[in-house]
Design a binder for these strands. Structure first.
Lengths: 221, 221
DNA sequence: CCGCACCGTCGCAGAAGTGTCCCAATTCGT
DNA sequence: ACGAATTGGGACACTTCTGCGACGGTGCGG
């Protein structure tokens, strides 16, 4: 995704990137960037620092707050203060305009390569003995590894995201099933039952996925 | 490790780095760099391109041939050709003299951080027993070698690129077929079926190209 | 001790996801 | 032009997932 207010530069970048086989998203300002970035989940961000509205640095920070996507700053001046600030805000690299296309492409390739390497072990979601593996859609409990169905996966991800806090049935219905109105049968209980059958050694005596009577469910380390 | 023939710059770097708590090795030329690097196995290399004797680029290549240690090029001129060549020789980053110490330090930190994350090789076209041969467009599975059609080749290349991670049908449609919008029939399943017929001993019980129900396909080593 | 709310357990049927095979359209070499 | 290889689409069967309801057990307050 290219975040850049100057249309001419955007086009130059688009053509250069598409020539290399990349799919390109364009954002002319920070707001667009945040919305588009959230919806489309791009593989790399090229961000101009000088943007109308939200400053590029804030875009970097906002994105970095929720994502590990590689961010390359494209800035008009070789201002080393901006660069340092940018890198510390979470950017991974930078180039200064006027940039040499070939160099930019090399840097993009490098970032993508690195992101692929990092992705595997770095997204590891875990809570105590329970480890979720996004790369294979499996749970590992102790030494045992079990494949999960899509719903089971989402449920467990939600619970792990809450660490050891209780998550109510309503919250689960909303975030896993996408329901709007609460109280929709016993879908959650069911899924928990099935999940326990997979990940608990003794499903009748769960040690990882606990019930908190009257409130919901939670994980325990 | 600082590889730099100018003693003054070496000292500047040494002091700056030691101030940050790093331990610094110095090499005044390429030969020293290779020997010292081999014996001491440093965490980061700072390499000047203009060296007496062996050229810095060749140092980069030699080191990169056997190691993944982060290499940062320190070059006297902002010559973009050198930079591109350097990055393609295997360097991870560069700064140009005169450099701002704070920026250099930020880049070193970034490289160390990223080196800790990296785990696997990436341009290797094999995964477990499955090995792709670009020059003949064939797969080798164990001892058996089978020719592939163009689409089969691309599909397998995509899967191998993902190592053992799951790849969704949408991703495959995008990256192998070049589709833009998801959900286009069952082309993927078909290709997988044909690929399994070629590379699996028992296509009904695949051991290499696995289905992850609800998510996509993945390879297994 | 009793009743109630809450939860575990299980069976069932429709829905969704895949494997398998066949066919037509296209491409390419002969 | 003809045939082989490739490839996308579709039909059908089969497996797995998933939502729902029913039943019974358990904890809690009166």
């Amino acid at each position: 995704m290219v975040v850049e207010d100057d249309e001419e530069i955007r086009l130059v970048l688009r053509y250069a990137l598409e020539d290399e086989g990349y799919r390109v998203l364009e954002a002319a300002n920070g707001e667009q960037a945040l919305v588009l970035g959230h919806d489309e989940d791009p593989d790399v961000l090229l961000v101009d620092l000088r943007l109308p509205g939200i400053h590029g640095l804030d875009v970097v920070r906002s994105v970095r707050a929720t994502s590990k996507v590689p961010i390359i700053i494209v800035t008009a001046q070789a201002d080393s203060h901006d660069v340092v600030t940018g890198l510390e805000a979470g950017a991974d690299d930078y180039v200064t305009k006027p940039f040499i296309t070939k160099e930019l492409l090399a840097r993009i390739r490098a970032q993508i390569r690195r992101a692929n390497d990092v992705a595997s072990d770095h997204d590891l979601l875990e809570c105590g003995e329970v480890r979720l593996r996004p790369e294979t859609a499996e749970v590992q409990v102790g030494q045992r590894v079990v494949p999960l169905s899509p719903t089971e996966y989402k449920l467990l991800a939600e619970l792990i995201g809450a660490r050891e806090r209780v998550v109510s049935r309503d919250d689960l219905l909303r975030n896993v099933w996408g329901y709007r109105n609460p109280g929709d049968g016993r879908v959650v209980d069911n899924l928990v039952y099935r999940l326990r059958a997979k990940m608990e050694a003794d499903p009748a005596e769960p040690v990882h996925l606990l019930t908190v009577r009257g409130f919901g469910y939670r994980l325990k380390a």
